[in-house]
Amino acid sequence: MTGVLLGTHLPRGVTRWQDAAMAEPASDADLLAQAGRRAEAAFGEIVHRHGRPLYAVAYRWLESPADAEEIVQDAFLLLWRKRARVVLVGDSALPWLIVTVKHLAANRRRARMRREQHERRARLEPRFADLDDERGAVADLLRRAFAALPPLDAEIARLCLLEDVTYAEAAARLGLTEGAVRNRLSRARTRLRRSIDEQGTEDAP
């Protein structure tokens, strides 16, 4: 499924659900039951109905617009993947979505707290103090390159590149999806290479 956006925006190429045969608006259960080419348009109607209240719930938990939007998108993606077997309360997907958003947001908040604790410890404990001069110069180059990354991207890069943690393990620790870890790590690698190259050029005699 194409990316889900908040508010009145629907998946790319998807129009609002319309069915002239229905006198009343279709229930969420009816929309999730649609198949084939009608499925994405029907799901887009669910996004339109529930995107804003879900964003409000996520924001109350995380107090970050970017994190709240990402959590809501992850919740809709989970609903899309599980739509054939999800059990709704009545005919509305909203209760299921709210529970999912709260669960994802709680994971993200715990991961944020663990990351902040790790960053505090890292500031108090020199990580490269025992290296010789040559290795210390390389370590300093890496430290500066990592410091230039956004905190979450730096933590993903540290886990996956320095500690050799798998995507799945990093996602579980940080309260992200594996897809988010892959995308952020790809961007982090590009920025690290660019930063190291630029620093190497500046330090060259």
Rank of each mutant, 00 (worst) to 15 (best):
residue 201 T to F: 10
residue 75 A to I: 08
residue 46 I to M: 00
residue 174 L to W: 03
residue 59 Y to C: 01
residue 9 H to A: 02
residue 71 I to Q: 03
residue 1 M to C: 02
residue 29 A to Y: 10
residue 86 V to E: 05
residue 73 Q to W: 12
residue 192 L to K: 14
residue 95 P to M: 11
residue 77 L to G: 09
residue 99 V to N: 13
residue 187 R to Y: 12
residue 150 P to T: 06
residue 56 A to F: 08
residue 89 V to T: 11
residue 141 L to H: 08
residue 37 R to C: 13
residue 59 Y to T: 00
residue 1 M to I: 11
residue 38 R to A: 01
residue 169 E to N: 15
residue 118 H to E: 14
residue 184 R to V: 10
residue 180 A to H: 08
residue 71 I to M: 12
residue 10 L to W: 03
residue 181 V to W: 03
residue 72 V to I: 02
residue 123 R to I: 15
residue 9 H to N: 10
residue 69 E to T: 06
residue 64 S to I: 04
residue 97 L to M: 08
residue 108 R to Y: 13
residue 160 C to P: 04
residue 31 L to P: 01
residue 168 A to C: 13
residue 147 A to R: 12
residue 41 A to K: 07
residue 148 A to R: 04
residue 112 R to D: 15
residue 163 E to V: 02
residue 99 V to Q: 06
residue 81 R to A: 09
residue 203 D to M: 09
residue 54 L to A: 03
residue 86 V to Y: 01
residue 154 A to C: 07
residue 157 A to S: 06
residue 35 A to Y: 12
residue 186 S to D: 15
residue 70 E to T: 07
residue 196 I to T: 08
residue 142 L to Y: 07
residue 201 T to E: 10
residue 63 E to D: 12
residue 104 L to D: 00
residue 53 P to D: 06
residue 177 T to N: 13
residue 85 R to S: 02
residue 77 L to K: 01
residue 131 L to S: 06
residue 146 F to D: 02
residue 95 P to T: 08
residue 1 M to T: 05
residue 113 M to N: 08
residue 49 R to A: 01
residue 7 G to E: 03
residue 121 R to S: 11
residue 38 R to F: 10
residue 152 L to A: 05
residue 108 R to A: 12
residue 82 K to V: 02
residue 163 E to C: 09
residue 99 V to W: 04
residue 89 V to Q: 13
residue 183 N to M: 06
residue 91 D to F: 15
residue 37 R to M: 09
residue 110 R to A: 14
residue 17 W to M: 07
residue 177 T to D: 11
residue 152 L to S: 02
residue 123 R to V: 14
residue 75 A to D: 01
residue 9 H to R: 03
residue 89 V to C: 15
residue 155 E to L: 07
residue 169 E to I: 07
residue 75 A to S: 12
residue 88 L to P: 00
residue 198 E to Y: 14
residue 61 W to L: 09
residue 140 D to I: 03
residue 125 E to R: 02
residue 176 L to R: 03
residue 111 A to Q: 12
residue 162 L to S: 07
residue 200 G to K: 11
residue 38 R to P: 09
residue 154 A to E: 08
residue 187 R to G: 11
residue 74 D to I: 10
residue 195 S to T: 07
residue 67 D to F: 06
residue 63 E to Y: 15
residue 152 L to V: 14
residue 190 T to E: 09
residue 205 P to E: 09
residue 101 V to Q: 00
residue 136 G to Y: 05
residue 185 L to G: 07
residue 126 P to H: 10
residue 156 I to K: 03
residue 80 W to A: 00
residue 48 H to M: 07
residue 43 F to T: 00
residue 46 I to Y: 00
residue 40 E to H: 08
residue 124 L to K: 14
residue 70 E to V: 14
residue 137 A to L: 05
residue 31 L to H: 01
residue 177 T to W: 06
residue 77 L to D: 03
residue 30 D to E: 11
residue 70 E to H: 05
residue 24 E to F: 05
residue 31 L to Q: 00
residue 13 G to W: 02
residue 190 T to Y: 15
residue 68 A to R: 04
residue 53 P to L: 01
residue 97 L to N: 00
residue 87 V to Y: 12
residue 94 L to S: 09
residue 126 P to G: 00
residue 37 R to P: 10
residue 187 R to C: 15
residue 156 I to H: 03
residue 171 A to C: 14
residue 109 R to D: 11
residue 58 A to E: 01
residue 139 A to R: 04
residue 53 P to F: 04
residue 80 W to S: 01
residue 113 M to A: 10
residue 54 L to P: 02
residue 11 P to V: 06
residue 63 E to L: 12
residue 95 P to H: 13
residue 136 G to I: 13
residue 58 A to W: 00
residue 165 V to C: 05
residue 145 A to N: 04
residue 195 S to C: 12
